[in-house]
Lab assay of single mutants.
Amino acid sequence: ENVVSAPMPGKVLRVLVRVGDRVRVGQGLLVLEAMKMENEIPSPRDGVVKRILVKEGEIDDTGQPLIELG
């Protein structure tokens, strides 16, 4: 899985990584606010952040691509 998608609709509060960062499975990639709760979205695998497809403050839909890993 190279693309991390939104598991729920919500607002992107914080992006915790930058392009080029090495990430490990379970590491937080970004924080979504949904139903007044903050949810940290973890990396599904080890890899390198290739692209960040959303910006802080954006509203996303379920299934929307958020981050691409390489």
Rank of each mutant, 00 (worst) to 15 (best):
K50T: 13
K50W: 07
K55G: 10
E58H: 11
G28D: 04
D21R: 00
E33L: 14
Q64S: 11
S43A: 11
S5Y: 15
V4F: 03
G57A: 06
V15Y: 05
V4C: 06
G28W: 07
V17C: 07
R45I: 15
V25E: 12
E40N: 07
G70T: 14
P44K: 05
V12L: 07
R22Q: 12
N2A: 11
G47R: 01
I59N: 09
D46N: 12
S43F: 02
A34D: 09
E40P: 07
I67K: 02
G10Q: 01
P9M: 10
P9I: 07
K11T: 09
E38G: 05
S5T: 15
G20W: 01
V54L: 06
P42R: 14
L32T: 04
G28Q: 05
V23S: 01
D46P: 07
L13M: 07
R14Q: 08
V17K: 00
E33F: 13
V23H: 00
E40L: 15
A34Q: 10
N2T: 15
K11C: 09
A34Y: 15
N2E: 11
V15H: 03
D21S: 07
T62Y: 13
V12A: 01
L16F: 03
G57T: 05
R45F: 13
R22I: 14
S43V: 02
S5L: 15
R14E: 09
I41N: 03
P65K: 07
K36I: 06
L13P: 00
R22M: 12
K36L: 13
A34K: 04
I67L: 10
S5M: 14
G28F: 08
L32H: 06
P65W: 09
K36G: 15
V49Q: 00
V3Y: 14
M35L: 12
N2H: 14
A6W: 08
G28P: 15
I59F: 14
L13Q: 04
V25K: 15
P44A: 04
D46F: 08
L13Y: 00
E38S: 08
E33Q: 09
V31L: 07
V15R: 00
V17R: 00
K11F: 09
V31I: 13
G70Y: 15
G20R: 03
E58Y: 13
